[in-house]
């Protein structure tokens, strides 16, 4: 039986992209840090929830793309992701998980923040901001994942090697930006 995976093939496919992603995230990380430093000092609640926030939107979008690439491989959907029903059902599931997760994060973050760091912000505004920016980021990232899957699959590359790095890196950027933007505008 023919082998599916070959270590050299995987390395050859992944290495340039991973290197590119690291350079990209180092540049944007330093840029974001410079841009957000003053804001984060003023709103310490951001610091508290940001790692969990970024992690969750990245995980949800990666799980989504991971499911889609598996469906591609077993032939449940074709190269154009048809039938779209499978796509939408998967998106709906992730959005539902995201809604629960971001709601939970807002509660935990706020309780933790007010108990240990004396943070006091408007409860309803905070919950709304976290849930809205979280779900918007996650949905955007799912499209990034689909795009990455499409671009790689149609070129004969293995999407599994590309989608998670692409999604988490771009997701970090968009998620951080969106959360901070909503917090300074509405909180």
């Amino acid at each position: 039986m023919e082998r599916y995976y070959d270590a050299r093939e995987i390395i050859r496919e992944s290495l340039p992209f991973l290197a590119l992603i690291i350079v990209f995230s180092m540049v944007t990380g330093n840029f974001l840090e410079g841009f957000a430093e003053d804001i984060i000092e003023k709103y310490s609640i951001i610091l508290l929830i940001l790692p969990a926030f970024i992690n969750m939107s990245g995980s949800l979008a990666s799980v989504f793309t991971s499911r889609i690439t598996s469906s591609l491989y077993v032939g449940e959907i074709d190269e154009d992701f048809k039938p779209y029903r499978v796509l939408f059902l998967n998106m709906a599931s992730m959005a539902l998980v995201g809604f629960t997760g971001f709601l939970f994060l807002a509660f935990v973050g706020l309780s933790f923040g007010s108990a240990f760091f004396g943070i006091s912000v408007s409860f309803s505004h905070f919950v709304l901001i976290v849930v809205v920016s979280g779900i918007v980021t996650t949905v955007l990232m799912m499209f990034v994942g689909l795009f990455a899957a499409k671009m790689t699959y149609s070129r004969g590359l293995d999407p599994d090697n590309f989608t998670t790095p692409a999604v988490t890196t771009i997701g970090d950027l968009i998620g951080t930006f969106l959360l901070i933007l909503l917090i300074i505008t509405y909180l």
Partner: peptide, 10 residues
Amino acid sequence: GNISGALGQR
């Protein structure tokens, strides 16, 4: 995260 995430996905 990227390397092990890709491994998990494969």
